[in-house]
Design a protein around this nucleic acid. Structure first.
Lengths: 147, 147
DNA sequence: TGATATTGGTTTCAAATGTAACTAATATCT
DNA sequence: AGATATTAGTTACATTTGAAACCAATATCA
């Protein structure tokens, strides 16, 4: 029989479209209202939770590569939203932290982000929300392992 | 109370990481084994199912914009994988179709793609697979509507 | 200690992507 | 028919992104 793929039912395609659509939606919030790209927002979000960690640790926790981090860090430093100290034991690894205005921005964005997520989740039943968590975990494991 | 976001639990972030990881995995197949980018593969997948449709129709069915399509079409034409006829009624809209070798490629990739999807889905129970379909539909609707 | 490897981070260059402007063909409206 | 608006598709330009080269600091090991 002829093999056939219905793109619109193909899981990798569907996930890609969904993630893009969600990213677009939320990026609008970050950029229009706060002047941040998604990458920059992620760095801020990480630093909002973990104080004084170096760029490599941010990379680990954000699934972004170090080049992307490096560029975001540069912009955030220039914008005065984060600061960088000198590393005590390892002089390469310089701890990053939010400045006062960086933290203020974080505290302004976090509710907007949670709000957006809430709007998405409100389309689902409580049971579906639980399923979704479990399913995404499983798919992450299945796709990350080897390829 | 201080608002806090755990990035690794934040749905938009999780979806983005998942979709990227899956895309990476599958893109490796397309590019290493068949020399195609994801965009090119999508065009091929659409044309494998719908014969003689113009680029605009491909765009509609693939969630890609017309510039991306235009570029992919150019590369696929150059590679001899698709062909373009002249439009009968509308001379702007030129119907695209797979060539013989394009179809051969399609028939080689389709099983590999379905196989990859199968490996992903095998991590889920049948019930979870059904949930996933429903959930993705709902999230697409919720995120696409307004923003 | 000295040679080599590894790691944190930045820079450079090429390729991919998005936006807007543009051309050509068709449709609409008077 | 003639003016205006739309639509299909391409091109040009700016921006983003990724890969690899690179520098400096630290770790490893003979």
């Amino acid at each position: 029989m002829r093999p056939t793929i219905k793109l619109e039912e193909f899981l990798p395609y569907r996930l890609s479209v969904l993630a893009n659509q969600v990213s677009q939606g939320i990026a609008r919030t970050y950029s229009e209202r706060f002047g941040l790209s998604i990458t920059e927002w992620r760095v801020i979000a990480i630093l909002g939770r973990f104080e004084n960690i170096p760029a490599a640790a941010v990379a680990e926790r954000s699934a972004m590569d170090k080049v992307a981090i490096s560029r975001a860090v540069r912009r955030l430093l220039d914008a005065g939203l984060i600061r960088r100290r000198d590393g005590r034991e390892d002089r390469r690894a310089k701890p990053l932290a939010l400045t006062r205005s960086g933290r203020a921005l974080y505290e302004a964005i976090a509710p907007a982000a949670l709000d957006y997520e809430g709007r998405l989740l409100s389309a689902l039943t409580p049971g579906e929300r639980r399923s979704l968590d479990r399913i995404v975990d499983k798919l992450l494991a299945a796709s990350g392992a080897d390829g």
